[in-house]
Each structure stands twice: as structure tokens, then as C-alpha cells.
């Protein structure tokens, strides 16, 4: 009875959430530099223009280098932290974990300025892709921990003990039991870290320095030129499709991981 009202509201809410994403391909294929209704005609020229843009291709290359590195680094840190919190109990665990998870609530610009200050004024290092990787790893790690915690938590401790009891060493237990059971969580965590890094703007803007702009930094710079907007729409369409694909794969692995460990699905990411 009341469920109906809720359902209508929920669908309206989804329309609000998806409105920008749905508009994206509409204007990406619209044959006009002005982004407004009514539509003028169908074209694929904006997509074609993408491949001619050398600075765009360079930005994509940079972003891929950063995102791949971040996904590996953040997931490695996430594995350590998730294993530590789910398996061991020790004093100040909550405090240390609170610090590690802090970037979840800290505005990104604060992290950006703090790292910029530290890199340029204290360490005196020059800004490049590596500094961006360091910054992105910091903000992606809390997300990987959240995902990996769920994966490690559904792991019954007696599974390890059983393997150990049956003659395996600590290391081979990790390889034969723990790793296969959390592997889907690791894959899902890597994909999420990749997506976060690929999408992050403000830290990249502060830490990339000249000549190493990532994709979001490049996109932001293009917003100033109205004639470039349809090309950005085309690029956005590709990015959205890519993100949806990555997320679907991540979600598939996350669920499979929980099912594999015999656990119950309790919800999505975060």
C-alpha cells in the first residue's frame, strides 16, 4: 500500500541521479557545438576528433599509468590493513585505523595542499606523475580497505587453523586457503582504486606539475573553450561506459567472493 508511494519516489530519485549521464551520449552525437535542445542532427565527428587530439592521448596515457599504479599500491596497503584489523586485536587499533580511513571524510583539497606543501617546501621534490600516484594511493586506500575488510571478515579463522592442523605452513596456508578466498575481493578492490584514480581531479591538479596532466586535469582545462565541449561530451560518454563496465566487473567479483566464502551479501561498495 505505502510501498507504491516509495517506489514512485525511488524511481524519481533514480531519474535525478541518472539525468546527467543519460544526457551525455545525446549531446555527444548531436551535430552542434551548442549544448542545448532542440537537437540538430546525428554525427560521430566528435568521437573522431578525439583520436586527433595528441594532448588528450598523452593525458590518457598519464592517467592509465597513475591509475594502474594506484590500484596495485592501494590494494597492497588495503590487504595489509584489512588482514590486520580482521585477524588481530591490539591496543590503539581503532585510532590507527581512524587515521588511515581519514581521507574518506577529509576534503580532497586539504590533502592536495598538504601534499603540495610537503613535496615542494619540505622535501623539495619536483611534481610529476609519481607525486600524483602517492596522493591518489592515500585517498584510494580507505576504499580498498572497506572492500577487503568484507572479504577477510567472511573468512572463518578456523579455516586457517584447519589447514595448519593438516600439515601446511603459515605461508602455504595463505597461498592455498586465504588467497583463493579473498582473490575476488582483491580484484574488486583494484578495480575500485583504478576508477577512483582515473576520476580524481583536485589532487591531480595540485600534484601533477607541468607536462604531466592526467585526464581529469586535461578535461577541466578544456571547459574554458566552448567549441571543445562536444568533444568532451564524446570523451565523457566513453568514460561512463568504461566506468560502468569496470564497476559491473568489480561488483561481480565482490559478490562472487562473498558467495565463495559462504557468506551473505550485505550490500554494495563503501
Amino acid at each position: 500500500m505505502k510501498g507504491r508511494g516509495f517506489r514512485i519516489y525511488a524511481i524519481a530519485y533514480l531519474v535525478f541521479l541518472y539525468a546527467p549521464i543519460v544526457l551525455l551520449p545525446i549531446f555527444a552525437f548531436n551535430n552542434s557545438t551548442i549544448i542545448s535542445f532542440p537537437l540538430v542532427g546525428f554525427t560521430t565527428k566528435w568521437f573522431a576528433a578525439l583520436s586527433d587530439d595528441t594532448s588528450l592521448l598523452l593525458a590518457v596515457r598519464h592517467s592509465l599509468i597513475v591509475a594502474v599504479s594506484v590500484s596495485i599500491l592501494a590494494t597492497t596497503f588495503g590487504v595489509f590493513a584489512a588482514r590486520a584489523t580482521t585477524r588481530y586485536d591490539f591496543p590503539a587499533k581503532g585510532g590507527i585505523m581512524g587515521l588511515i580511513m581519514l581521507p574518506l571524510v577529509l576534503p580532497d583539497i586539504i590533502i592536495a595542499v598538504a601534499l603540495l606543501g610537503a613535496f615542494t617546501n619540505i622535501l623539495g621534490v619536483s611534481l610529476n606523475l609519481f607525486t600524483v600516484i602517492l596522493g591518489h594511493t592515500l585517498i584510494a586506500t580507505p576504499f580498498t580497505i572497506a572492500i577487503l575488510n568484507a572479504a577477510f571478515q567472511s573468512l572463518d579463522r578456523s579455516l586457517e587453523e584447519a589447514a595448519y592442523d593438516l600439515g601446511e605452513t603459515k605461508f602455504s596456508t595463505f597461498r592455498l586457503i586465504i588467497l583463493p578466498l579473498v582473490a575476488p575481493g582483491i580484484i574488486s578492490s583494484m578495480l575500485i582504486a583504478f576508477t577512483i584514480s582515473l576520476d580524481e581531479y583536485i589532487i591531480a591538479a595540485f600534484l601533477s606539475g607541468a607536462g604531466s596532466a592526467t585526464l581529469p586535469v586535461y578535461i577541466f582545462s578544456q571547459f574554458r573553450f566552448p567549441q571543445r565541449v562536444p568533444i568532451i561530451m564524446a570523451l565523457g560518454t566513453i568514460l561512463v561506459c568504461l566506468s560502468v563496465l569496470l564497476l559491473t566487473v568489480a561488483e561481480y567479483f565482490r559478490r562472487r567472493g562473498i558467495a565463495k566464502a559462504g557468506g551473505k551479501d550485505t550490500g554494495g561498495f563503501l
Partner: peptide
Amino acid sequence: SLWLFLITIPFWTSYLIRVFL
């Protein structure tokens, strides 16, 4: 899970472009 997934998808898709839209 499906509903939660639907709600999180827009969040993970290019922030800049969403704001621009």
C-alpha cells in the same frame, strides 16, 4: 544489492563531467 548498485553507479562515473553536465 541491485538497487544499491544502481545508486552507486553514477557516483563512480566521471565526477568532472557530471558536474559539467
